[in-house]
Simulated scan of single mutants.
Amino acid sequence: MPTVEVADLKDGDFLLDVREDDEWKAGHAEGALHIPISDFVARYGELTEAAPQDGRVHVICRSGGRSAQVTMYLAQQGIDAVNVDGGMQVWEAAGRPVVTDDGQPGFVL
């Protein structure tokens, strides 16, 4: 499965967060699109509307398991998707910003 390291992500890369609502509310990457894995198939259209047509979808969860499942699904749909290795735990450990919906500092649940 295609993966990418957190350190290789650039500002402006399209990020899809598939964690559940409580995890998202605690803290997330600014600018990420949130579609929980439990709602993913029903809300798939939101991704196709928001994702760049010629760009890559970087899928992230807490540690990489759920995002791996979504990455495989997206690849089967013909979408250029990669799993973010280590997920939000590595994101936070790397010093990348984690924010709440109101822009305050957040944390990874």
Results as ranks from 00 to 15, higher is better:
residue 84 V to L: 06
residue 90 V to K: 15
residue 26 A to H: 12
residue 28 H to N: 05
residue 4 V to S: 07
residue 71 T to Y: 08
residue 90 V to Y: 06
residue 30 E to P: 03
residue 105 P to E: 06
residue 30 E to I: 01
residue 51 A to R: 14
residue 76 Q to R: 12
residue 30 E to V: 02
residue 52 P to L: 06
residue 59 V to E: 04
residue 16 L to P: 04
residue 88 M to F: 08
residue 18 V to N: 09
residue 8 D to S: 14
residue 20 E to H: 01
residue 16 L to Y: 11
residue 10 K to Y: 05
residue 42 A to Y: 13
residue 12 G to Y: 06
residue 10 K to N: 11
residue 75 A to T: 14
residue 31 G to M: 04
residue 81 A to D: 10
residue 6 V to T: 12
residue 50 A to L: 02
residue 19 R to S: 12
residue 86 G to C: 03
residue 44 Y to G: 01
residue 109 L to V: 02
residue 58 H to Y: 10
residue 105 P to A: 13
residue 67 S to V: 02
residue 68 A to Q: 10
residue 10 K to P: 08
residue 38 S to P: 02
residue 87 G to N: 12
residue 98 V to W: 07
residue 46 E to Q: 15
residue 84 V to Y: 05
residue 61 C to I: 00
residue 32 A to C: 14
residue 47 L to A: 12
residue 55 G to N: 11
residue 25 K to C: 00
residue 85 D to A: 14
residue 7 A to H: 03
residue 38 S to W: 02
residue 36 P to Q: 04
residue 91 W to E: 09
residue 66 R to S: 03
residue 105 P to I: 13
residue 55 G to L: 09
residue 32 A to I: 11
residue 8 D to E: 13
residue 54 D to W: 01
residue 29 A to T: 06
residue 63 S to T: 15
residue 7 A to Q: 04
residue 86 G to D: 04
residue 58 H to Q: 05
residue 67 S to C: 08
residue 73 Y to Q: 12
residue 93 A to P: 04
residue 49 E to I: 02
residue 79 I to G: 07
residue 99 V to T: 15
residue 12 G to P: 07
residue 18 V to F: 05
residue 32 A to H: 09
residue 99 V to F: 07
residue 32 A to P: 03
residue 33 L to T: 04
residue 17 D to L: 13
residue 10 K to V: 08
residue 35 I to V: 15
residue 25 K to F: 01
residue 59 V to D: 00
residue 19 R to L: 09
residue 13 D to P: 10
residue 100 T to Y: 03
residue 63 S to K: 04
residue 41 V to K: 11
residue 37 I to V: 01
residue 44 Y to D: 03
residue 32 A to L: 08
residue 27 G to Y: 08
residue 93 A to C: 01
residue 67 S to E: 05
residue 1 M to L: 06
residue 75 A to W: 07
residue 48 T to N: 07
residue 6 V to Y: 07
residue 101 D to E: 13
residue 11 D to E: 15
residue 36 P to H: 01
residue 87 G to D: 05
residue 47 L to C: 10
residue 36 P to N: 12
residue 59 V to Y: 02
residue 101 D to K: 12
residue 109 L to H: 10
residue 59 V to P: 06
residue 5 E to R: 11
residue 97 P to K: 12
residue 51 A to H: 06
residue 5 E to D: 14
residue 81 A to C: 09
residue 5 E to Q: 13
residue 68 A to R: 02
residue 40 F to H: 10
residue 19 R to P: 08
residue 90 V to H: 06
residue 13 D to L: 10
residue 20 E to P: 14
residue 80 D to K: 12
residue 83 N to G: 03
residue 54 D to L: 01
residue 73 Y to D: 03
residue 83 N to Y: 01
residue 41 V to H: 11
residue 45 G to F: 03
residue 8 D to K: 15
residue 4 V to Y: 00
